[in-house]
Structures are given as C-alpha cells and as structure tokens.
Design a protein around this nucleic acid. Structure first.
Length: 681
RNA sequence: CGCGGAGUGGAGCAGUUGGUAGCUCGCCAGGCUCAUAACCUGGAGGCCGUGGGUUCGAGUCCUUCCUCCGCAACCA
C-alpha cells in the first residue's frame, strides 16, 4: 500500500519579510525541516530543501508607507537578515530565494494564467470600499467604523471585537480608512476566485481517507473545513505591491499573497535546478513534504493542493507536519511588542552556540501543543543534558584514551556479554531513532539520541576502565575501543540535530565521512587511529548570562509600557457646542449585580441602581474586570443613550471607562460617594 | 453552542487497538573518582482539568462544564 519514493522535496514556510526571524520560527518550522533534510541526506537519499522570503502583501506595503520608503527597500532589508540568520544556524537550504525574484514573478504569473485559461477560476464583480485619497481599494481589516449591532465605534471591516459579530465592510456605519483616515467610497471591482467547492470531493477522499496518518492537529483542522463545506476564495487583490494579474481586466490588481507565496516553492525549485526541476514537482516518485506552523494548515492542506490539482500536472504533498506555537517566558511571541529572541541577537550574545539553541528548541518543540521557552530551561538543558551527559561522555572517553594509550585507538579483544548487551542496546536505539524521525517526531528522536550518550556513560561506569587499567590491560583496551566506537556513533546520531558539534566531534576523532548506516557499527575507528586533542563540545552557561537575557526581556517589557504611556493621544474630534454637551445625560449609579454574558467573551451585564428604579447595562470590559469586582462600586454612565439589544439583552446606557493605548480599560468612578442618579457635569 | 488543538508528579513531555501510569530535568540518599562538582544506583512525589456514563476493567471510549492556544481575520 505504501508508495515507494525515490526522492524527497522538503519545503519550509516562507517567512514574511516584514521583520527578522525569531526562535518561534526556528522551533516551529526551520529546525524540524533541517533535521529531516540532514537525516535523509545522511542516509544517502536524494533531497531538495527549499526556502525563501515571502515579500508581497498588504502589511509590507503599509509598513513601507509609514516609513516613507518603497516596499522593495523593506523586503531587501529583512530578506538578507533572515537569509544570514538561517545560514549561521546551519539551516541547509539548497536554495533560499524570494518572491520578488524575476523567476517567481514569471512562474506565479504563468500559474495564474494557466488556471485562467483552463477555466479553473470564477469571476465576480462586487462593491468594495475605495480610498480616494490613497488611491487604493481597502482590505477589510483596514476599514473601521461603527458596528451596526452594538454601536462600538471601532469595529473592523470584517468583525466587531466588542460584540463578536461577523461583518462586511459595507455594514459599517461611518466607515473610515485606516490608511489615510478619509471616508472611503464603494466602487465596483472584479476579482477572480478559486472555487474550492469544486475540489471538495477529491480533497475529502485524499485527506480524510488516504491520509489518516497526518498529525491530529492537521487532520482535525482539515476535517473541520471539509465538513463545513468549502467556499470559493478570491485569488486577486486590489493592491499595487505584488505580482500583477496577467489577464484582461487585471490592471491595478495583484495575486493575493496566499496564491503567490506557495508557488514560491515551485519558483525556487526552478531557480535552483532550471533543467530538471520538473522531476521534483511532476514525478509521482517524489515525496513532497511541507513544514509549516499551525496557522498555515488550511493553505497547505486544502488551498495549495487545490491549486496544484487545478493546474493538473503537479504532485500533491505526502505529509504536512505542522507544529503548534512557541511562547516565550509565558507570553506570546510578538514582533511588534519586541517580545522575542531574535536569531541575529542570539548569535551576538552566544557566539558559537547555535547547537545549544537547536537542541533546546528541538527538545521542547511545540509538536503537539504550544510550548514555553524559558531561559532557565535553556540553561538547565545545556548544563545538565548537553554538558553533563553528551559532552561529558565524549570528554571522559577521549581523556581516557589519551591518558592510557597516547591518543591512539587501542586494540579490541573479544567482547564479553556486557559489551554485547551494550552494543545491542545501540541497535535498538538506532531503530527507535529512525522510527521517530520517519514520523516527524523530532523531540522523541532527540531523546533517543541522548539515550545513546547515557548508554555510553553507563558503560564506562560499569566497566570501570580506570580500575582495570591497573590489573587487566587487555580488558581496558577492549572497553576503551568500544567506548570510542560509541563516540563515533554519537557523531552520526547527532548530526541532524547538532551539526556544528557533530562536525567538531568528527575532527576530534579524525573521521570525516560517517554515514547513517554506520551508526552502531563497532568498526568505525580502526585500531591505532590517532585521535586529536579533546576539546569540550559544550560549556556550562553561567547564571549571569541567563540573567542578562531575562533582563533584556524585562527591559523590552518596560520599553513597551513606556511607549504605551507616551503614545500620542488621539487627535481631538471636532468642536461641539455647549448645547450638544447638555444633551448628554451622564449619571452615577451603584452596581447592584454583575455577571458575564454567556457565550460572549467580552461582555459583562450590570444591574445599576440609578436612583430611578434601576437599569440594565452591558459593557465590553470582561477582559479587564471580574464580575464580582465592581459590585457595590459606583460608576458613571450615559443615561439617555438609545437602548440597544446586544446578544439578546437590552442595554440601557453606556458605562464610562478610560481606554489606555494598549487597549486596557479603567472604569470611571466618582472620587467620593454620591447618591445614585447624581448628574455628572 | 463557528471550527480545530491542548489540559498527566515541582517543571517539560510520553502513554499506540481500553488491561499494573512512564521518560527527562529538579529534589533526597548512597556509590564512584576517568570526566566540565560532571557520571552511576536507589528513593520520595500523580484520585491523569471537572461532573456524569459505557465496561469485569477508563489517562485511553461517550457526554457535561471549566481553562489555555490557534483558525476564521498579515504573522511559525
């Protein structure tokens, strides 16, 4: 049943070039992909490992605008930083290119054209908001206005975050462009859609029946999408930064990034092997594997395969091992809040310690659920696993050989039962290691590799060559010969995970070419082979270095708070007359009851004593106040605001609260106790 | 009820088709001294988020509710 493959094409999600890469990217995508690529190469398989920067899309266009430079300058800046970081971390891409390349433009454009000619798209004309001042159509997210359901003034074009309603930009009352601040006007625009619904039947069979082995997070998400029924998705956007739509009526429009970016995998393959790229994409004996993060699952499992199938000549992915997310010290990693460990900064602070980070990120990779990276854990894993177990075993074996046999591999006599049991253990671990790697379980695979080193330590402890050297030279030779064979095997086993250390270890034992199939062999180092001087593979990381990193994060947090407190206050609204102010009836009241509104994340329902018999008010502050926190407290509210139903409950007024720049809310309360119903002027 | 993932000793994770709860780190005790105070052995520590159900038997299957994360809605 299992297909046999002749070669493997590995892709890793294209990082978005609006910032550098951080440990989350590395742990989620690039390290697993690199481990897999290295493993297959070590086994002598034909592998191509593709990467590149994703450089189009609205956020980059906007960032360029705010910085007053061209989008190209933005992506140039980050593309080279990202590329360099990957190189320094030993991510062995066969090619790392970019979506602004000429080849990619041609390829993506041609891909669109082919689907267009085959009639794989449908066209729809719709009204969309156009910003006349900025001269562009607006993405849903870049329009704000008043929510027609709850009256929230800052609803987005796609959703109101206060009442949770799903919106279309045209629903918004008083829409405003987030780009220029002007009032957008509806304008007809034509777009092309990929009718995913047409592909539903085969996708269902292909994923739900033929790929039950996919990871549960991947399978589950696909199943949910397929069960809901697929909808056509727009493949074009009204934007001036991207790949122009190459067909009639496409002026001023570009490919939507999700159509553009995955084709980048193909373009980069073409750039790498212009003559025989097709064998990687169009030959059934190629196994295609996409390494991605969990946010990208539907694109890689449903949308991109639908594109490939629609085109007609491409193979489909064999597996999509998606990882969950990595947090940092308990908080979500965030580029904008500078809550991240940036790769280029890590390398400055820990020069030469790429493997330590590779180890830690693999050992606590978010394979099945979100995980947390902490500097304490980083230190502990380095000191008590890499140094104490792996590094120490290698060092003691090397030192013993130097001490007793002048650095030459001693002759091995007949192994005894215990020797054989240890070597047997090696065969066993090798098998486990391969099973884990084949199933993309890199965390477990690494643990198995560490078990090899543990076995080595135990072997030395049990055979005690420092004792036998006084009584039985032959036995000591055999033991240290075997210990060194184990050391050589470690160099192989760790190569996919810790390539720099493996390289160093191979120099120490004077062996260049070791293949995966050699793992577990006891004839890797021939008798008499001269070893080089031992050099520590890993060194302890002291508390000061860790505290410096923690301090750095705390500083980032402080800087954020400072930035928020110094955030420019919003510009004033237009002047109003005193009569307009007088129309508002603001009162005080005492909170009698307060409860969460069921099935609404942010809403609290208040019962207020307003001195007039009481009233119910809903307020979207559940994220900042526990219901019981405000009971018995005085609040201020607008008493004559038109009542409005929210989630089926009528809200009779609005509780006044100050909103901080970071979105945090503080309820306004009278400084001294006043009687309920007092007017606020 | 929009959808998906996760909740297991102090921390991080395994737990395959239901059959005695495991691993690494940390902690405690002992051993060893070749080794980066590293290594080896033993030990303590868990009603597997919550309530209910199916079963001779549930961490595992069904179900209630709670918590965290993601998708839908640029980001691994």
């Amino acid at each position: 049943m299992r297909k046999t493959f002749q070669r493997t094409l590995i892709t890793s999600a294209l990082p978005y070039a609006n910032g550098p890469v951080h440990i989350g990217h590395l742990a989620g995508v690039y390290i697993p992909a690199d481990i897999y690529a290295r493993y297959l190469r070590l086994k002598g398989e034909e592998v191509l490992f593709i990467g590149g920067s994703d450089e189009h899309g609205v956020p980059i266009a906007l960032k360029a605008k705010t910085e007053g430079i061209t989008p190209q300058e933005i992506v140039d800046r980050y593309h080279y930083i990202i590329k360099k970081s990957f190189e320094e971390f030993g991510i062995t891409f066969d090619i790392y290119s970019r979506t602004t390349s000429a080849i990619h433009h041609q390829t993506a454009s041609g891909f669109f054209q082919k689907l267009y000619e085959k009639g794989e798209f449908i066209e729809k004309t719709s009204e969309q908001y156009y910003d006349e001042e900025a001269g562009q159509f607006l993405a849903d997210r870049y329009i704000t206005g008043e929510c027609p359901h709850c009256g929230n003034k800052h609803a987005y074009g796609d959703q109101c975050e206060v009442c949770g309603a799903t919106l279309s930009p045209l629903d918004l009352i008083h829409p405003k462009s987030a780009v220029s601040g002007s009032i957008p006007v509806p304008k007809a625009t034509k777009h092309w859609y990929l009718p995913l619904d047409r592909h539903e039947a085969w996708l269902k069979k292909w994923i739900l029946e033929d790929h039950r082995e996919w990871k549960s997070n991947v399978y589950g998400q696909c199943k949910s999408w397929l069960d809901m029924g697929l909808q056509p998705r727009a493949v074009s956007r009204d934007l001036n930064w991207g790949i122009p739509i190459p067909v009639e009526g496409g002026e001023g429009k570009v490919l939507y990034v999700w159509f553009d970016a995955p084709v980048g995998y193909i373009s980069n393959t073409i750039e790498h092997s212009p003559d025989d790229w097709e064998k990687w994409w169009k030959d059934e004996s190629t196994r295609l594997i996409h390494f991605i993060g969990k946010d990208n699952i539907v694109f890689h499992c449903i949308v991109f395969p639908a594109m490939l199938k629609a085109e007609g000549t491409y193979i489909l992915p064999e597996n999509v091992p998606a990882n969950e997310f990595l947090n940092l010290e308990g908080d979500k990693i965030s580029t904008s809040r500078n809550w991240a460990v940036w790769l280029h900064e890590y390398l400055e602070d820990f020069p030469g310690k790429q493997d330590v980070l590779r180890y830690v990120l693999t050992a606590s990779a978010p394979e099945t659920k979100d995980n947390d990276f902490t500097w304490k854990d980083f230190q502990a894993r380095n000191n008590s696993e890499l140094v104490a177990v792996f590094g120490n075993f290698v060092n003691r074996a090397m030192v013993l050989v130097h001490k007793y046999f002048q650095g030459r591999i001693p002759e091995r006599g007949e192994p005894d039962d215990y020797d054989r049991a240890t070597l047997n253990e090696f065969k066993h671990i090798k098998r486990n290691l391969e099973d884990c790697l084949n199933q993309f379980r890199f965390r477990d695979a690494l643990k198995e590799a560490m078990n090899l080193a543990r076995t080595g330590n135990k072997y030395l402890a049990d055979t005690e060559p420092w004792k036998s050297v006084k009584t039985d030279a032959g036995r000591t030779k055999t033991v240290l010969n075997i210990a060194m064979q184990i050391t050589a095997s470690l160099a192989i086993a760790f190569e996919p995970f810790l390539p720099f250390s493996s390289e160093k270890l191979k120099r120490m034992i004077n062996k260049k070419d070791l293949k995966w199939s050699d793992l577990g062999s006891i004839d890797l180092l021939e008798t008499g082979l001269r070893l080089n001087q031992p050099d520590l593979l890993f060194e302890k990381i002291e508390d000061e270095a860790i505290e410096k990193q923690i301090q750095k994060l705390q500083d980032a947090r402080k800087a954020n708070v400072l930035k928020e407190s110094q955030a420019a206050a919003k510009p004033l609204k237009a002047c109003i007359g005193f009569d307009a102010f007088e129309k508002m009836d603001i009162r005080t009241g005492i909170v009698l009851e307060c409860s969460k509104v069921p099935r609404a994340d942010k809403l609290l329902q208040f019962k207020i004593d307003d001195g007039l018999g009481g009233r119910t008010i809903l307020s979207g502050i559940a994220g900042y106040y526990a219901p019981e926190e405000l009971v018995g407290k005085q609040v201020c509210f607008i008493a004559n605001l038109e009542p409005r139903k929210i989630r089926g409950i009528e809200s009779q007024g609005m509780i006044l609260a100050a909103e901080n720049a970071d979105g945090a809310v503080a309820v306004i309360r009278p400084d001294k106790e006043v009687s309920p119903g007092s007017e606020v002027k």
